[in-house]
Design a protein around this nucleic acid. Structure first.
Length: 111
DNA sequence: GCGTTGACGAGGA
DNA sequence: GTCCTCGCCAACG
């Protein structure tokens, strides 16, 4: 297996999220086998700024479908705008019909 | 090597 | 149904 850090594993999964789809931190953590470290997924996204990677972090939200990390973007409205551009309706900083747009890496990547 | 940090999740009241 | 508390675990300083 690749000797990549937990961070990079998160980045790889997030980068695989198809357009118009979203997932939760816990789902990614669970896919990586560390479902207990769902916080690490979000923490990894925080470090994305330090990297030159192109990570669609706007497609990653918490289990409530809430745009918890929108303040970590260039602009708090950027995240909602990105999702809206992909056909995902966001209102009150939360994704409408979140379940319909949910993308589970454990299923999509089909281990 | 240790303590702190976190864009979370689940359970309990 | 909402609000609060605990746990989780890897990276950073």
């Amino acid at each position: 297996m690749d000797k990549i850090s937990f961070y990079e594993q998160v980045y790889q999964v997030v980068a695989l999220i198809p357009k118009g789809k979203v997932t939760s931190y816990g789902a990614i953590a669970a896919y990586l086998g560390t479902k207990g470290s769902s916080r690490m997924v979000g923490y990894a996204m925080n470090q994305v700024h330090s990297l030159s990677l192109n990570i669609p972090a706007h497609r990653v939200v918490n289990r409530n479908g809430l745009l918890t990390g929108k303040f970590h973007f260039e602009s708090p409205t950027k995240m909602q705008d990105q999702l809206a551009s992909e056909g995902i309706i966001v209102e009150e900083d939360k994704i409408i019909n979140f379940k319909a747009h949910f993308w589970d890496p454990a299923i999509a990547l089909a281990l």
